[in-house]
């Protein structure tokens, strides 16, 4: 009984994963066919969004796998950061400059997004009764 449920859940998750893989490949196909300078996986994400918004694909058909993958998103790029070892010398040499660039550009971005959204939102709220 318990095993039955587990097998069913596993099969459902696997089928959903295949669906997401198909959408991902479709994204790459669309991007290259239309010569879009966009990552194929991003186009795949927009395709899925379009399917959900138009109601062509009910959310529950892919929700299980999607939730599992987004929850563990960090896991999938760990192997990429392992590749950083090849840049060890570069980091030792330019570490402070890189850190300064990252901190200042992040701070500037946070202030601009926060202040502009707050200003625009405030004006909108004052106008509405």
């Amino acid at each position: 009984m318990l095993i039955d449920v587990a097998v069913k859940t596993a099969c459902a998750l696997l089928a959903q994963l295949v669906g997401l893989l198909v959408l991902n490949h479709a994204g790459y196909a669309v991007a290259s066919a239309l010569h879009l300078p966009l990552p194929g996986n991003l186009v795949g994400m927009l395709l899925l969004l379009a399917l959900l918004v138009t109601g062509a694909l009910p959310l529950r058909w892919i929700e299980g796998s999607a939730a599992l993958l987004t929850r563990h998103l960090a896991f999938f790029f760990i192997p990429i950061t392992v590749g950083l070892i090849g840049f060890a010398d570069l980091f030792l040499e330019t570490g402070p400059a890189i850190l300064m660039t990252l901190v200042l550009s992040a701070a500037a971005g946070i202030c601009v997004v926060g202040l502009s959204a707050q200003m625009l939102g405030g004006r909108r709220r004052r106008r509405s009764p």
């Binding site: 990552p39 194929g40 991003l42 795949g44 994400m45 563990h72």
Partner: peptide, 8 residues
């Protein structure tokens, strides 16, 4: 790839 698609 599929993980990114899930961000929709």
């Amino acid at each position: 790839g599929p993980a990114t698609v899930s961000l929709a």
